[in-house]
Design a protein around this nucleic acid. Structure first.
Lengths: 251, 251
DNA sequence: CTCGTCAACGAACGCCGTTCGTCAACAAAC
DNA sequence: GTTTGTTGACGAACGGCGTTCGTTGACGAG
């Protein structure tokens, strides 16, 4: 452990006029990890719009300049937070024989984790997957597709589109979340209903001769919530992938 | 036409000491349309990051406060610009018998238009489609799916996922575009190759025992460019939709 | 000609990301 | 034990942002 009592002059207090301001050593604790944690805390509690370098610094009882020793800039901080969140995704042992089931579960899990952290997804589309946990997830999906029999080049495309669907949908959801927050609402269901109601009213007021379908089937347009839409798209993609999967005769 | 010569005193110039400063009437030209056009001009020329209210005002030789008479806030301006861009999409006469062909063409066209205007797609995921041109496109896709035989509720889901794929992919592309711009590059192909090269180097340096697939098939991961990826995902979705389309026997 | 209305706009507020120069604390060298 | 060099922390500042407020000046109505 570190000796925090001073420079060795045990017991004897340092003259107050020497230590110009600060309690000194107690602040020597900034690190990239602590910054990422503080950032994630702010993100979860107040949303991406509130996540500023100043706000994170405040959370750590310091000034914004101090962060730049451990983090290159805000974009890098966002990527680090994103990768930290991805770490929550739990992956099973890959079993190529059950690739579809496992990919479905992975997608739902990833979507759940991303949706659970306010709008971290907004930072996701930007970056290349280079973080520890991005790589881990990518290796899982990519390997599973290849071992299930898909040629690597096509597996690359399939993984890419699956990822876009997961992250893109979570991102879209995060925008709604931000809107809900801006409206002062707390309950997602309440927001969804009020939102859907507004859309419905608007669509019902459209001129019937120009927009017969949108106007005529309003109820179908607002029938399904975010999760159902995500599942539907996921099934579309997995169906397409399955149809392209080379079929082996039994060995 | 409006009489611009003054308050009726034809020919006689207004005393110069009355019009204290400005060339007067020449500035009475601000309108939502002009603001949207100026915004789109800035967006195309300098990207979304450069699109500030101040920059748009500058483009119109005025101050930022003047814009707020015609536009509620920046978000509304972005939505207006987005809808203006969507107006470039050309739609054919719907032919339900060729729904798949038409949807494919529509998606490619929409993707092309969105990709052609720097990063307008970044504004798209946020808003509900209420603009003139959003509605037009929605009516086209939705009506086509329904007339092809899909139940309205499922057609709603399918349209939603198709849109997410188009806009999400265009958005992702726009982020790369912004990155390219930030790197000072002008040629997308040059950027793509340098970018892919970096990824490849990075992946090749991964530990082989933890990431055998990503590391082993790097070349496949970077083989396809953005358009090929988009096409692949589009085909996956359309395949899935086709498989769900109720088949009518010949009438 | 007067007056009320409203588009235009200068100035300002309170944010933001980032940089610079300074300073305190430690480690190494003497 | 003293000096010196290094490095993390940080106060202050820069230039930019979105938006609001209060004023001004031109126009249309009376």
């Amino acid at each position: 452990m570190v000796d925090r009592s001073g420079s060795g002059n045990d017991g004897i207090p340092v003259p107050p006029w020497r230590r110009s301001r600060k309690p000194a050593q107690l602040k020597r604790q900034l690190s990239q990890e602590r910054i990422v944690s503080a950032g994630l805390r702010v993100l979860d509690a107040e949303g991406l719009d509130a996540l500023s370098m100043r706000r994170v610094a405040q959370e750590l009882d310091t000034g914004p300049a101090s962060l730049y020793v451990h983090v290159a800039n805000k974009e890098e901080l966002l990527e680090l937070i994103y990768d930290r969140v991805l770490g929550e995704i739990e992956l099973p042992e890959p079993d190529p024989g059950r690739w579809r089931e496992q990919l479905h579960a992975y997608a739902m899990e990833a979507h759940r984790v991303l949706s659970g952290h306010a709008d971290v997804a907004r930072a996701a589309l930007a970056g290349v997957p280079t973080g520890e946990n991005s790589l881990r997830a990518g290796e899982f999906v990519f390997g599973l597709l290849i071992e299930a029999g898909m040629p690597p080049r096509e597996a690359s495309l399939a993984m890419d589109r699956l990822t876009l669907h997961i992250v893109g949908d979570a991102y879209e959801g995060s925008l709604h979340y931000a809107r809900m927050r801006a409206a002062g609402l707390r309950d997602a269901r309440v927001y969804f209903e009020s939102f859907a109601g507004q859309i419905a009213d608007y669509y019902r007021a459209l001129p019937a001769e120009r927009f017969p379908y949108l106007r005529g089937f309003v109820d179908d347009l607002i029938a399904d919530d975010g999760e159902a839409r995500f599942r539907y798209g996921l099934d579309l993609l997995l169906d397409g992938i399955e149809a392209r999967m080379p079929k082996d005769g039994p060995p």
